[in-house]
Computed example of a mutant assay.
Amino acid sequence: MSSYRLDRTAFKAQTAEEAADHATYYKTLTWQERLRIANYLNSIAYNYPENEPPKVDKTAFSVRSRE
């Protein structure tokens, strides 16, 4: 069993309010980066590989015109 060590240089001391302020960080990102993050979080939440989202079951839907 290998021993893991915490890299203390990767973190900084913050108050709870500073740590919870995610909006400021995400507003600095481009829309492409935010979309990439959202894709990653969806893949984690719904348990599918990041670049292979599940296919839609097209047999469950039907197309009809409105008259």
Rank of each mutant, 00 (worst) to 15 (best):
N39E: 09
L35C: 10
K12Y: 00
Y4V: 08
T9G: 10
R5N: 14
N42M: 12
R5P: 02
L6Q: 05
Y40C: 02
S43F: 00
Q14P: 00
L29C: 08
S3E: 10
E18K: 09
A10K: 15
Y4L: 15
W31M: 15
E50P: 04
K58V: 06
K58H: 08
K58Y: 07
Y40F: 11
P49R: 10
A23Y: 02
D57I: 11
D7F: 01
P49A: 09
L29V: 06
Y48W: 08
E33S: 09
I44L: 15
E33R: 13
M1C: 11
A38V: 05
T9S: 14
I44G: 02
I37M: 08
D7E: 07
A16C: 12
F61W: 13
R5Q: 15
R36D: 04
N51A: 08
H22M: 04
S2M: 15
R8G: 07
E52T: 12
K58R: 13
M1K: 12
S3R: 11
S43N: 07
R34V: 09
W31I: 15
T24H: 06
S2T: 15
I37N: 10
A10R: 14
L29W: 12
R8S: 11
Y40A: 04
Q32K: 14
R34K: 15
T24Q: 06
D21I: 07
A16S: 14
N39W: 09
E18L: 04
D21W: 08
A13L: 12
L29S: 04
V56G: 02
F11W: 03
Y26Q: 08
E50C: 03
L35P: 01
I37V: 13
T28N: 13
N39K: 12
P49D: 06
E67H: 10
T59K: 09
D57R: 12
D21C: 08
N42Y: 07
S2I: 15
L6P: 00
N51G: 09
A16Q: 14
K55G: 08
N47D: 12
P54E: 02
T24E: 04
A23N: 02
N39R: 14
A45L: 14
E52H: 06
F11E: 00
E67K: 13
T28S: 13
S43Q: 03
A23D: 06
H22V: 05
E50M: 10
A45C: 13
S62P: 01
A23I: 06
R8H: 07
Y48E: 02
A19T: 00
R66H: 04
Y48H: 11
Q32A: 14
W31S: 15
Y4S: 12
V63C: 14
A20Y: 01
V56Q: 06
P53H: 09
F61A: 09
R5G: 15
K12V: 00
S65P: 10
T24P: 01
N47W: 04
A20Q: 07
L41Q: 06
D7L: 09
A38T: 05
H22S: 05
E33T: 11
R34S: 08
